[in-house]
């Protein structure tokens, strides 16, 4: 049993729909779901004004349509699944504490911001501030996993404390800015200022990176934890190299300006 939602008409201004979450809908009848309030700009409108709703009382949501202007989907959800066929707007899965979100399309900024746990997989490209801390907050995501197959924007994993972010495509500037812990894996590298001001945590890049001047080269090595990561990532279709015969990781430590104990590992194929 699932709840299927189809976008009827594209909103003309952003539609804030934090009610698109299993936590909200799980116990509701079809008519109650249709009556849920969403915010079209400053207007409060029933969900059914923008969505056709099939099904009821389920922890499984399937949403169809180009939802670029639909924000806050799956915000603060704790269980269940949200599957989106189409693109989504900002704050997807922000503050979530559990459950699973899958997007077959592109996502915007702030996905998984300050999330505490759970899993987000975006098959297309994503925006900036993935798993980041909102302005002024001391910590970003505290646990969970975010996978983006495509590219990402600025400040990915800004101030994250734990958890894993994996990017298939390239990221823009300030990846891992002020990171406090956790892991970011960059399969296609990143633009500049990766790991700037990081305190702790690990950034692993499969491609050469332009390093901040305040990172010091430490050694070449093949840490055993990459082996463990590789096993964990395998089910998601991600190959993380670890065998010494395939190459080595160059390890950089920083950011000296903090001074921090973070590390950036850059893969060097043999």
């Amino acid at each position: 049993m699932t709840i299927n939602l189809h976008l009827k008409q594209a909103p003309s201004v952003p539609l804030e729909a934090e009610v698109l979450s299993p936590n909200v809908m799980a116990e509701l009848s079809n008519s109650e779901i249709r009556a849920l309030v969403v915010y079209h700009g400053k207007r409060q409108v029933p969900l059914e004004e923008f969505f056709d709703v099939d099904g009821e009382r389920s922890y499984e949501l399937i949403i169809h349509g180009e939802l670029n202007k639909v924000r806050l989907i799956g915000r603060a959800m704790s269980r269940g699944t949200v599957t989106v066929h189409g693109s989504v707007g900002m704050h997807l899965g922000a503050l979530m504490t559990g459950g699973r979100i899958e997007v077959h399309g592109d996502a915007s900024d702030w996905i998984g911001a300050e999330m505490k746990n759970g899993f987000i997989h975006v098959h297309g490209n994503a925006g900036g501030q993935i798993g980041a801390a909102y302005r002024g907050a001391l910590a970003g995501m505290k646990n969970g996993t975010i996978i983006v197959d495509g590219s990402a924007g600025l400040e990915v994993g800004m101030r994250m404390r734990r958890g894993t972010i994996i990017l298939g495509g390239p990221a823009k500037d300030f990846t891992g800015l002020q990171m406090k812990g956790g892991t970011i894996i960059l399969q296609s590298g990143a633009e500049i200022r990766t790991g700037a001001w990081m305190n702790r945590g690990t950034i692993i890049s499969m491609k050469p990176l332009q390093m901040m001047p305040t990172f010091a080269y430490a050694s070449d090595f093949n840490p055993t934890f990459t082996n463990v990561y590789a096993k964990q990532l395998k089910p998601h279709g991600i190959d993380l190299p670890f065998a010494g015969s395939d190459g080595t990781y160059q390890r950089f430590a920083g950011d000296l300006s903090v001074p921090g104990k973070g590390e950036i590992l850059v893969w060097q194929p043999a």
Binding site: R193, A196, W197, M212, P213, T214, A216, D255, L256, S257, V258, P259
Partner: peptide, 23 residues
Amino acid sequence: FELITILRALIKHQHVGDDQIAE
């Protein structure tokens, strides 16, 4: 940004390489 970050490291007596500074 890089230059300011280097200064932040230098005031704390952290070693930054000559090549990095030259950049």
